[in-house]
Simulated assay, not measured.
Amino acid sequence: MRKALMSAGIVTLLIMTGCSNSDATHSAATDKNASNTVQGETAPDDSMAMGNETAGGQMHHSGSAELPAGLQTAQNPEFPVGTTVIMNMDHMPGMKGAQATIAGAYDTTVYSVSYTPVTGGEPVKNHKWVIHEELQDAGQSPLKPGSKAILNADHMPGMKGAQATIDLAQQTTVYMVDYTPTNGGEPVRNHKWVTGEELSAK
């Protein structure tokens, strides 16, 4: 009888120990899964974010102050070099509403273009802006909407060398600007291009 009771006690103890270990393992797994879920909600994977930026045609932020050959400096721009302005467009994240300084003003024909990047990827529609001097062998006369042209600009990955269709053409003054994005990014230097219609006096 005593042996039977001892055996029953040992079996009970083993069952309890097994449940305890199983519960602890399940609890740890649950905690880990919960932690992963929270991290997934609050801290997206960086590689995915970078991939999305690339897929979306992320523009280069700062650029060279070097100008295309033949580009003429504006003689009487609405916003002279050194003027502080507010940008009213959103070509890039953090641009709209940002305070900018005019780094250059030029008279030219500006184009909105659509093209497929030479590096592959989705077609880019209505990219703003490319200027006449950034088109390969474009000649002297402005191109009309619907015309085809090869891009010499490299504002975005896969742009240079791509064949583009002109969506919009406008003779105007274009500006190169320096600014700090409103979303807290690094300062941008020599951003090309914005038009006077996209700027307002500070």
Results as ranks from 00 to 15, higher is better:
Arg2Thr: 10
Arg2Ala: 11
Ala4Leu: 10
Met6Ile: 11
Thr12Ile: 06
Thr12Phe: 14
Leu13Val: 13
Leu13Ala: 15
Leu14Arg: 14
Ile15Asn: 04
Met16His: 08
Thr17Val: 15
Gly18Phe: 12
Asn21Tyr: 15
Asp23Ala: 13
His26Gln: 13
Ser27Asn: 14
Ser27Ala: 15
Ala28Thr: 10
Ala29Tyr: 13
Ala29Asn: 14
Asp31Glu: 14
Asp31Met: 13
Lys32Leu: 13
Asn36Val: 01
Asn36Lys: 12
Gln39His: 10
Gln39Glu: 14
Glu41Ile: 14
Pro44Leu: 13
Asp46Tyr: 13
Ser47Gln: 15
Met48Tyr: 12
Met48Asn: 13
Met48Glu: 14
Asn52Met: 15
Asn52Asp: 13
Thr54Val: 05
Ala55Pro: 00
Gly56Val: 01
Gly56His: 11
Gly57Thr: 03
Met59Thr: 05
His60Asn: 08
His61Leu: 04
Ser62Leu: 01
Gly63Lys: 11
Gly63Pro: 04
Leu67Asn: 07
Leu67Asp: 05
Leu67Arg: 10
Pro68Ser: 06
Ala69Thr: 08
Leu71Cys: 03
Gln72His: 05
Thr73Val: 14
Ala74Lys: 02
Gln75His: 04
Gln75Gly: 07
Pro77Cys: 06
Glu78Asn: 07
Thr83Arg: 05
Thr84Lys: 12
Val85Asp: 06
Met87Leu: 10
Met95Asn: 09
Gly97Tyr: 13
Thr101Lys: 14
Thr101Leu: 02
Thr101Cys: 01
Ala105Gly: 04
Tyr106Glu: 03
Tyr106Ile: 01
Asp107His: 00
Ser114Asp: 05
Thr116Val: 10
Thr116Pro: 09
Pro117Thr: 03
Pro117Phe: 02
Gly121Met: 02
Pro123Ile: 00
Pro123Glu: 09
Pro123Gln: 06
Pro123Met: 01
Asn126His: 11
His127Lys: 07
His127Val: 03
Trp129Glu: 07
His132Met: 01
His132Arg: 06
Glu134Val: 02
Asp137Tyr: 09
Gln140Trp: 00
Ser141Gly: 00
Ser141Pro: 01
Pro145Gly: 06
Ser147Ile: 04
Lys148Leu: 10
Ala149Val: 03
Ile150Asn: 06
Ile150Asp: 04
Ala153Ile: 01
Ala153Arg: 01
His155Trp: 07
Pro157Gly: 03
Pro157Thr: 00
Pro157His: 03
Met159Tyr: 05
Met159Arg: 00
Lys160Ser: 11
Lys160Ile: 00
Gly161Cys: 01
Gly161Phe: 02
Gly161Gln: 05
Ala162Lys: 06
Ala164Lys: 08
Ala164Met: 03
Ile166Asn: 03
Asp167Val: 07
Ala169Met: 02
Gln171Leu: 00
Thr172Phe: 09
Thr172Cys: 08
Val174Gln: 10
Tyr179Met: 02
Tyr179Cys: 04
Thr180Cys: 01
Gly185Ser: 06
Gly185Cys: 04
Glu186Asn: 12
Val188Leu: 09
Arg189Leu: 08
Trp193Pro: 06
Gly196Pro: 12
Glu197Thr: 09
Glu198Ser: 12
Leu199Lys: 09
Ala201Met: 11
Ala201Glu: 08
Lys202Val: 02
